[in-house]
Structures are given as C-alpha cells and as structure tokens.
Simulated scan of single mutants.
Amino acid sequence: MSRRTLFIAGLLVTLVLAGVVSFYASSAPDGLNKVAEDKGFAEHAADSPVAGSPLADYGVKGVQNERLSGGLAGIIGVAIVLALGTGVAYVVRRRNRANA
C-alpha cells in the first residue's frame, strides 16, 4: 500500500469518525463538570473567553440541526488540525534541509 493510499484512507476514517460517530458520544458531563456539580461549586463557573466562537460547545454556530452541527464541527476541527500539522511539518522539513 502506498503512502498516498494510506493517507487518504486514514483521512477518510478520521472524517467519518469526526462527522458521524461523534454524534453518538455521551452527553453526560465530563469528570470536571460532574465533580463541580457534586461539590456544589458549578454555579461559580465563568464562561470561557471563546464561548461565543463559531465552534463553541462542539457545534457550528447558526446550524440548527444538532446532528449536522456537531458533525460539521468535528470535520472543521479535523481540517484545522490537519492544516496546522501540515504547516509545522513543512516548516520543520524545510529547516532540516537548509541545515543539511
């Protein structure tokens, strides 16, 4: 199997997981939120500085369908991480070639 085929297959699996399977994730609060609720200090929590961002709360702002919103947020997140990772790899690769 070539590197390109492996990359495309991995990307497709990642997109399916982010776009489809993510909808079936638990809606129960995570550990920190659960402890805050149990210990009674959850009401003192402040909103995150990015609470109004387009991808806040694992959804896409303006998309009313919850399933579609969560799936799009997952796919956008994958695209952002892939772009950042590719950019870092490109810079490191160029630097290594320049030093060689």
Rank of each mutant, 00 (worst) to 15 (best):
M1A: 15
M1N: 14
L6M: 11
F7L: 12
A9Y: 09
G10N: 07
G10H: 05
G10E: 05
L12H: 05
L12D: 04
V13H: 05
L15I: 09
A18Q: 02
A18P: 00
A18T: 00
G19F: 03
S22M: 07
S22F: 00
S26M: 08
P29M: 06
L32W: 14
A36P: 00
K39P: 02
E43H: 14
A46Y: 14
A46P: 05
D47K: 15
V50P: 05
G52Y: 04
G52V: 03
G52H: 05
D57W: 13
D57S: 15
G59P: 00
V60Y: 01
K61V: 07
Q64W: 09
E66K: 15
R67S: 09
G70F: 00
A73L: 00
A73V: 01
A73T: 02
I75N: 04
I75K: 03
I76D: 03
G77I: 02
G77P: 04
V78M: 03
V78Y: 00
A79G: 12
L82S: 07
L84F: 05
G85C: 05
T86R: 07
T86I: 07
Y90S: 11
Y90W: 12
R93K: 12
R95G: 10
N96Q: 15
R97Q: 11
A98G: 09
A98S: 14
A100M: 11
